[in-house]
Nucleic acid binder design. Structure first.
Lengths: 163, 163
DNA sequence: AGGCAGGGTTCAGAATAACAACCCACTTGC
DNA sequence: GCAAGTGGGTTGTTATTCTGAACCCTGCCT
């Protein structure tokens, strides 16, 4: 389920990541999860997404281990969805996307959501740092390497047989 | 064009960014562009995407100023597509996605593409740093703020009247 | 001329997303 | 006790989008 496109023959972490978060609405669902949304109706209200699509997205995010189902009521049966550690690690992706959009799309206009870095008080505009040496990464300092015969996306992701 | 989903009523840099790069295949097109791909046939060979979809994606990326058309031959007329500065700034998004996929999807398996940080020689696993104070950003150090009545995505993006 | 390459466009048909209605298990109001 | 309301979905239909394959055009090669 999800987009029609099939990335599974690629052998690339980016393609694999897109297989998980690349469906329409998915990343906005995750964005809202970071802002504390955890229930079906809340997402539905905020996004205006079709209910069946939302249900499908939540299901596949759970299947991929990004969200976790947590029953918060037995009678009547009610679930909420919370980010797992894996899901929380997507914050970097969201923040870099926010940074790019703020810089290149909104410019000075300023969108409705801003992230502030508490320790220094400034509005966060993230740069990438190398976790090994701590330096800010410049594009020119990056070398890309290709290796053949690596596992494809299909090898790595669980089948979405959510039938 | 693109995904059916309509994010334009949102007021959020993330949604705006998704409006530009959220269509199926788009981010893989950009990934390949970073790896030096600049011509129609190259993308088509590497991605296996339908030709009309590829043509549509290139068109909207140009419309959004992520790619730039450059004729490299007059007779016969031939175009190539290269990343603009705006497009090159998407490297951070690609790198964080690669980092997440490598860590959580491929794990030790190692996908076919790796990024090396030349200055320290290690495989790059990016962390976010605050461009203001230079510190590595921890999730707990981030405060989210909402402001009402900001321009929506529709206000900020050019209409895709690529008719 | 015939074949081929690059860069597309134009179809039909299949797979999704959108929209709207409906269902079920309670809980609350009267 | 029963109607209405709420949360969390499912089940249809319709409308778009993607896919796949064929086709077009300009020029180069032989």
């Amino acid at each position: 389920m999800g987009r029609t496109a099939d990335y599974s023959r690629q052998s690339c972490s980016i393609a694999a990541t897109l297989e998980v978060i690349g469906d329409p609405w998915t990343l906005l669902v995750i964005r809202d999860a970071f802002q504390g949304v955890s229930r079906f109706e809340q997402w539905q209200d905020r996004l205006g997404v079709a209910r069946n699509v939302l249900a499908a997205r939540l299901k596949t995010l759970v299947a991929h281990g990004v969200l976790e189902v947590r029953p918060y009521s037995e009678r009547p049966p009610r679930n909420e969805y919370v980010l797992t550690a894996k899901g929380k690690d997507l914050s970097d992706v969201l923040l870099t996307m926010h940074g790019w959009g703020s810089k290149h799309l909104y410019g000075e206009a300023d969108s409705g959501v801003t992230f502030t870095h508490k320790t220094c008080g400034s509005e966060l505009s993230p740069r990438l740092a190398c976790s090994c040496c701590g330096e800010i990464v410049k594009r020119s300092d990056i070398a890309v390497a290709f290796e053949a015969d690596r596992p494809t996306v299909a090898d790595v992701l669980p089948k979405d047989e959510a039938a």
